[in-house]
Simulated scan of single mutants.
Amino acid sequence: MQLSHLDLNLFLTFEAIYTHGNLTLAARTLNVTQPAVSNALARLRDRLDDPLFIHAGKRMNPTPMAQRMIGPVRQALRLLQSGISAAEEFDPALSDKTVRIAIGDIGETILLPRLVERLRRLAPVMKIQAFNVPRRSIPRKLSLGEIDFAVDIPLLANTQLMYDKLMSDDQVCAVGRHHPLATQHTLTIDDYLAMSHILVSSRSRGGGLVDIELDRKGMSRQISVRLQHYQAAFHMIKEIDLAVTAPLQLTRMYDCRTFPLPLEVPKLDLYLYWHISADQTAVNRWLRQQIFAAL
């Protein structure tokens, strides 16, 4: 089957049915009648010699062939839309776009408040949605247009992703004002190893950058608590004699005592990622400018 034998509008119908699992909702999205959607689906079924969707109650479930098709179809439609959007006028003051960002705890705390404040002034109708997306899923979700940007540590090379360094920060050790070591001027490696630590990580196992460096030196620290979010960690050290190693910018947002780490640890680098298909669109370029300006 060659594309020259297909009406490419059929793929718009296919994507809408796949998304909504319902002919009525697909028709409403496409602003056509339900019989028109049914007719388009029948034509595509005939051309591809596959039912594509099977009725299961009120929902239409995709066949294996439809599941294989949806990724490339969505990416192709997104590329076409990007080509159209790149030439369009963009007025941020009038745009009602919902900006979807895959972002972790650090970026959400440091970047998003500044970005929201900036957009409320320059693009007051825009909305932001933040998601915690597994790292391995970021390239696919960017390619499908399910997210517009991702903020993360350096990822494996992917020719479909564009990126730029967003921030680079030193890590420091933070304790509460009433911690027994809070009045010291410096922190020795022996002090650091003797402390009870909080490890903040979205993963269920494994250490952080500090633990990798300690392991190289044949040392380890005592991790008493493992958390998913830094906010909880800073509330905890305020009341309990625990320590948390965190980016310097983050510690400045809380009432705590900080010390330079008593060992060399790489800076924490965060990058902004976006898909190559959106690189030249006016809205994506403008949003990138605002994200970097916010920091």
Rank of each mutant, 00 (worst) to 15 (best):
N284L: 06
P260E: 10
V32C: 15
Q290S: 02
V116W: 05
V283K: 09
S168H: 06
I101A: 01
N132A: 13
Q81M: 08
T13L: 15
M60I: 10
A246M: 10
M253R: 07
N158C: 00
A233T: 05
R221L: 12
D7L: 10
R121I: 14
C256D: 10
F11S: 13
E88R: 12
D148N: 14
R28I: 06
L144C: 04
I198W: 11
G57P: 10
L161P: 01
L156N: 11
S201V: 04
P266D: 13
S168G: 05
N284G: 08
S143E: 12
S143G: 12
L48N: 11
A66E: 07
S137T: 05
E239K: 14
H5T: 14
L25I: 02
L122Q: 07
T109Y: 02
M253L: 12
T245K: 10
Q280W: 04
A42S: 12
K127M: 06
Q231N: 08
L41S: 05
I110R: 00
G176Q: 01
V200M: 03
P247L: 10
M69F: 10
V244K: 04
V133Y: 01
L23Y: 15
L23W: 06
V244R: 02
G57H: 13
S95P: 11
C173W: 08
H55E: 14
I110A: 05
Y273K: 12
